[in-house]
Design a protein around this nucleic acid. Structure first.
Lengths: 117, 117
DNA sequence: CCTTAATATAGCCAATTAGCAATATAGCTA
DNA sequence: TAGCTATATTGCTAATTGGCTATATTAAGG
């Protein structure tokens, strides 16, 4: 259950492929923000940011509120959990090489301590 | 150290955004494969797969060997570790809501057990 | 050598995308 | 109501992308 469907992963990965969008998420990790808050740190026009937000929203990575004429944006981490789960299937592949490295280091240490020079 | 640079993440996420490319990685998780091995399961032309492989290679997600006229492809999980690390910065956000869900469930159970109807 | 097999490259097309400026909409506030 | 502020929408462009067919390259094997 909860297994993110492939199509959702397409959207999420595509959304994460843009550095501006990742920066937006990083900003949102510190709390809700208005569109203008998000425009400020970038050298990009407001409509450009609005478009990025639409992409993020399409991927489920952010949601929008409504408060007067503001449309506060907040982070939705759910899809990231989906990515985490997907990537879990590959974790063994780098854990493995890490283990091998560790084993190798231990071998070196063993040699070291058994040497008498 | 080892902190994957943003530009690399661009390439990796972009590579992962395509379902065909993710399927290729899934296949490679079971071991090295030739280009033809990778063409077989898809209804796509060989040059199309070669192009996908180039994208994956550009992102560092696969590497190519050479054995006669074969160019065996193998999975390189390093960049996935980079993604895992990036995503780690957000892990608290879904762990948090999971905790809240758990707390809520406990509240329900507490109510349940204290009720006398 | 000539042929066949594996893969890469080139060139084309349609769709998508990141950016912009201009304009529209929506909701306060005076 | 008028005007100001926040945001969305529209319409444009240049670049990128996923797919194809056709062709080039590379290496074995007869």
């Amino acid at each position: 259950m909860l297994a993110t469907q492939p199509q959702q992963l397409d959207l999420v990965f595509a959304a994460l492929a843009d550095p501006t969008r990742r920066a937006i998420l990083a900003r949102l990790a510190q709390g809700e923000a208005t569109v203008n808050d998000l425009v400020a740190p970038f050298d990009l026009a407001q409509p450009t940011i609005s478009k990025h937000l639409k992409v993020l929203e399409g991927a489920g990575l952010v949601s929008r509120g409504r408060s007067a004429q503001f449309r506060p944006v907040r982070l939705e981490a759910g899809p990231l959990a989906g990515v985490d789960q997907w990537i879990g299937g590959y974790r063994q592949f780098w854990a493995q090489s890490h283990d091998r490295l560790e084993a190798y280091v231990k071998t070196l240490q063993a040699e070291e301590s058994s040497r008498d020079d």
